[in-house]
Amino acid sequence: MSTESSYINYLEVLEMPEDCKSGEAIRAYKKKMKDLVIEIARVEITEERRSTFLLEMARLNAAYYILRDKDLREKYLADRAQVMQLEEEWHATVEKNPDSEDADRLRRSYDSVLRHFLSTYMEELMLEAGRDKECVEASHWDAAHERLATRVLRHYRQQLYREIHERLPYYEVTQPKINWDERKQVVAELLKVGA
């Protein structure tokens, strides 16, 4: 179970160590953005590629926007650490006693912190970064990009939420006991009906 991978790591996006300086971040950002712009110009733009490029551009913008600002970087790293810790605590508590009040309390805290983390760092700040002067200059991000990116980012955030959700303890339903051989039979029978 990898808890790290679903909580976007902007240091990894720019391939920077945690103690990187602002100057290093800007160099890495500009180099990566330049490569991306060249790549965009090189290929034919399909709808799928447009979404992928928009997302990649938004990730780079956000990484630079967050990491260059000391306060914002610290807040981001602290929020990320908190959400990962809460997930671990919740897992541990559920393993001991799934019906305990503590488990329920942790679930609520985690869910609220997770939603905040995803909407702040994987949507709002990504869009905000796109309005930043330096990011606009490097990425040529404009109002049209923002309009298109709104849906792409919401989709991205929900995808990540779902990925995370799938490894969490069951709480909306009891844990199902799925027998996939039996499921295959059910599917076969459902296909026969009316055919």
Binding site: Y170, Y171, E172, V173, T174, P176, K177
Partner: peptide, 8 residues
């Protein structure tokens, strides 16, 4: 917490 058996 909904019963998974019935939901399935």
């Amino acid at each position: 917490q909904l019963p998974a058996d019935l939901l399935l």
